[in-house]
Design a protein around this nucleic acid. Structure first.
Lengths: 172, 172
DNA sequence: TTGATTTCCATATTTTCCCATGCTATACCT
DNA sequence: AGGTATAGCATGGGAAAATATGGAAATCAA
């Protein structure tokens, strides 16, 4: 399965329309069970998470997986109601149009403070949509935290010892 | 199958009429076996749930699913009697009209304390109708519970570590 | 009859759809 | 290699359709 990679800054017009970066569209197409050549993929936009600082896009497939997990919990259980509330009320379907664009509803633009430009950020199984300045700030913050605490080395070591770590997790 | 997603606040007029959010109508149409293009879907409104704080709308299909689950419970068991009582006596059929609206009978409006506005909340296989202020309060409560029970982590792992979470569920 | 409910019509606003334009990268041809 | 068609991409604008909402007429019920 293809992954969301890279960054792209696109314009948002008065109607709230933005182009989805073409490479992201390819991933969305692959992740929409109903998609076929010549048509446009649907996907899910999640808002209200991550402290309302950005929006997140998930392919239908990965969202379906999540929904399946939740629907295995007992119907009407507290836990399920809470999860359902957050996953379903704070997300909408979005459909890519003929020109590769989506419309960001006013509410979502407001939540992420998006006005005339939107930064698309690949995150592997999902992508994020940021107001460009907010994104820069967030990126700076991350870098700062990394270097201040000398975490850089530690984080990358997670990658190197992946299999060992995995085993450790499984054993526990 | 499409799911109920997102939130929308609509006006309720003196006669109790409210617009069903268009995206929700699409789900109801899909979930009504008798629906065909150009017609209006029927569905079910349940009003005895969640301590009478909101109403719940089910597509005909998802209501059937619920009924099937109930009928699998032991006949005359306490649980089955309770569920049957609530789901059957505390619910009505509702029919979307030509303009995409339904009429909320006075009784139901009173139960959910709905007067001039109604908040529609997507919950996956069902949706809820709240008095907007009550909904805000309930949402705050849920957020609190999220952080208290460390469900926040759960949500992130649902969204991000799908495979690991899947394994955990399968094992349990 | 009279109050309530349903059906029908009207409309402002939003959203969707369709077409057009530069621009860029790629394919193709000689 | 050089030049030229071709297709895809990001963007803009206007026409058309859909949405949310209000109100009037018609129907029903007590």
């Amino acid at each position: 399965m293809r992954r969301f990679r890279g960054e792209a800054e696109n314009k948002v017009d008065g109607k709230g329309r933005v182009s989805i970066p073409a490479p992201f569209r390819r991933v969305l197409e692959e992740g929409d069970p109903d998609w076929s050549d010549g048509f446009n993929p649907n996907f899910v936009l999640v808002y209200g998470r991550r402290n309302n600082k950005c929006l997140e896009g998930y392919s239908l497939k990965s969202m379906n997986d999540v929904d399946d997990l939740v629907s295995r919990l007992p119907r009407y259980s507290k836990e399920r109601e809470i999860l359902e509330r957050f996953l379903n009320s704070q997300s909408i379907y979005a459909q890519v149009d003929e020109n590769g664009r989506i419309v960001l509803p006013p509410k979502l633009r407001q939540i992420a403070k998006i006005t005339s430009k939107a930064m698309f950020v690949g995150m592997g199984e999902k992508f994020q949509i940021w107001e460009p300045d907010s994104y820069q700030k967030d990126m700076k913050l991350m870098e700062q935290r990394l270097s201040e605490n000398n975490l850089e080395e530690e984080i990358y070591s997670l990658l190197d010892d992946r299999e060992k770590t995995l085993k450790r997790y499984e054993e526990s």
